[in-house]
Design a protein around this nucleic acid. Structure first.
Lengths: 359, 359
DNA sequence: ATCGGCTGATTAATCGTTTAATCATGCGAT
DNA sequence: ATCGCATGATTAAACGATTAATCAGCCGAT
């Protein structure tokens, strides 16, 4: 865009100095007298000077733009992530270019290439199901899960699982069903693992993976949770709020009140979680923190990097690579029904408790 | 980024011609012999030449980047929109830079300024609640609702409302409650208006706005839908799937089966809508189409624009400005209960129908 | 008195592409 | 034989910033 703003030379001419001096004053690099710096700063601000990224990029080889790659952009977490990354990036003076791959691997590769072709300075990648990061020619920050090799920073999914499980255990649950989507996901496995690790002797956990089930039963098929309740499961620990929502509505539909008859927990604290009835008890990642660490690591790698070297795309590392999750206790999990490993079939809903929401 | 790829001069030297000829050949602009063009194309492809955006941007004043502004990035529609815009933009050779404003107006203005400072060629703005588009210095495509002045292209929200309402009416509903968030939103008003326009003589509609209600009753407060059912409302036409979800779970919790005792419909076909029980009947926008039109209009305006003129930021216009919505019929809406303007209080759930999901 | 070193600024080259202006050449028309 | 013209290519300037190299003073030390 031909920006309206004044160029560097314009400021220089206005003060009767050379463009180089202005550049030095603004960047604080060369040798410029304090008073000159002051004058230049002032007029630059007054004239509303904004450096041309194009000019700078051409000369320095840095565009000041980061690429954000989310293999699964339809993921309901996307808004949170995008928002957090954008915030972190912009406060470090970077712009964020998005890439979409609609889940497809080859499309993803193309998307990354487009970003590289646009000369991004670095990449933030949130891989899905252990995607291998091809050798791109710039620093890469990977946000997956701490147990994944090459991970830069991520939420402590395992720890989050433990928190959820401890909460459930403390409430008195002994028989819980873990509900996830796909066992190939590192994140989901860690969350499930964390949950399992808490339930030991005298308890029982099993895991239901939705995707394999849908392969045979069709998309959106019933999960058969009423049967599970009949089998004595008192809690459903879902790996994502999306699954929790699915479980909750299926239970409610079957006349099984949540949390009186069965508890449901989720993960991620998605947008709808606070407003449904009952509001969802869940574990939330601190995306702001995660994004800040990822971007900081990236920025550091970028500035340390010799812009002219061939540079392989090995993931950057950060000091902190594991950010704790926060347990959000709402109404969907409570003590299990008193003395009844229910073996009757689905019963009608009774004694509905009104209200009970917290602001 | 100092890209590894070869420069224009490299190709030129390889073939013993001048850089200008290569540039002309590749862009098809100047006068170059057919065979020369062919040779240049070939070696460019072979060497994997990718033009430097920085160099080009500096010379032409065009960066090949579009800015995407969504005042409410937390909106669950964001993934759909971002995906569609990114697809449309990238197939026109443009990149997409995102801006976030966390709902705040001044933050939004800053975000837009950052995009402008980065020399975006154009802006796609999805305004919230009649945000005024300040005079930015580049073409702007506005995606709001057809009834808004300055709108470039949008879904036919009013028509979508009609479709939902006609479906409900055909099922036999005569007393429906419209549930929206905020009456200040153009989109929500149009959807509600479309619904109302269908229900005439012998029917009754009323509207519940959530935001004003939450101002007094607190966030996530109950909507009091059980009472509404008691008052004879048989259907709840929600302005967004998010509200539909809230209504559905509240009804289920109160022991009111959906759709047997009350129907619920939504808007937008959000990610969870197909997998909850009962699956949500809703109206979906064709974001792919909308994004394509918006980006096409923007690209046209950009190419027609003299890169050196001062340029005011008036919204661009497209030939088609209204894209029809699609009714998605699932299980959450059915005929109202036979002969009973229910005046009893909340009743227990009975006769749960199992299954009934479609793939 | 002269030289070395420091300070504060300038010069000029450079990044990679586009494009207006120029140039050389061959061919048909006068 | 010469002029004009179309064709195919080259030259050179420009876009806006950064930065290495250079330069003019000036002060203190030998």
């Amino acid at each position: 865009m031909a920006r309206s703003g004044p160029k560097l030379t314009r400021i220089a001419r206005t003060l009767g100095v050379s463009a180089a001096t202005v550049s030095n004053a603004l960047s604080g690099k060369g040798r410029v007298s304090a008073e000159m710096v002051e004058k230049i700063r002032a007029t630059a601000a007054e004239l509303g000077y904004v450096p041309s990224q194009a000019g700078r990029a051409l000369r320095t080889g840095r565009t000041g733009v980061l690429g954000l790659v989310l293999p699964d952009i339809a993921n309901p977490l996307f808004p949170q992530i995008a928002q957090a990354i954008e915030l972190a990036a912009s406060s470090s003076g970077y712009g964020v270019l998005i890439a979409d791959s609609r889940g497809d691997v080859s499309t993803q590769t193309k998307a990354i290439e487009r970003l590289i072709d646009r000369d991004v300075d670095g990449l933030v990648i949130v891989p899905r199901r252990g995607t291998r990061i091809a050798d791109v020619g710039c620093p890469v920050a990977v946000i997956d899960t701490p147990s994944t090799p090459g991970n830069t920073v991520a939420a402590d999914h395992w720890g989050g699982g433990r928190q959820i499980a401890e909460h459930l255990k403390a409430l008195g649950h002994r028989r819980v069903l873990i509900i996830g989507n796909n066992p190939a996901s590192n994140v989901q496995n860690d969350r499930a693992g964390g949950i399992r690790s808490v339930f030991g002797e005298g308890t029982h956990t099993d895991t239901l993976w939705i995707e394999p089930l849908e392969k045979v039963a069709g998309k959106g098929c019933p999960l058969g949770l009423a049967d599970m309740v009949a089998e004595g499961y008192t809690a459903f620990a879902c790996i994502s709020d999306l699954h929790a929502l699915r479980a909750l509505t299926e239970l409610q539909r079957a006349g099984i009140n949540v949390p009186e008859k069965a508890s449901v927990t989720g993960f991620d604290d998605l947008i709808w979680s606070p407003v449904i009835t009952p509001a969802l008890t869940t574990a939330r990642m601190d995306m702001t923190e995660i994004a800040a660490i990822a971007v900081a690591a990236l920025v550091k790698a970028i500035s340390e990097r010799d812009p002219s070297d061939p540079a392989i795309g090995a993931p950057v590392t950060a000091e902190t690579s594991k950010v704790p999750m926060h347990l959000v206790i709402r109404q969907s999990a409570a003590a299990p029904p008193a003395f009844q490993p229910v073996h009757t079939t689905v019963t009608a809903a009774t004694s509905v408790t009104e209200g009970g929401h917290q602001p």
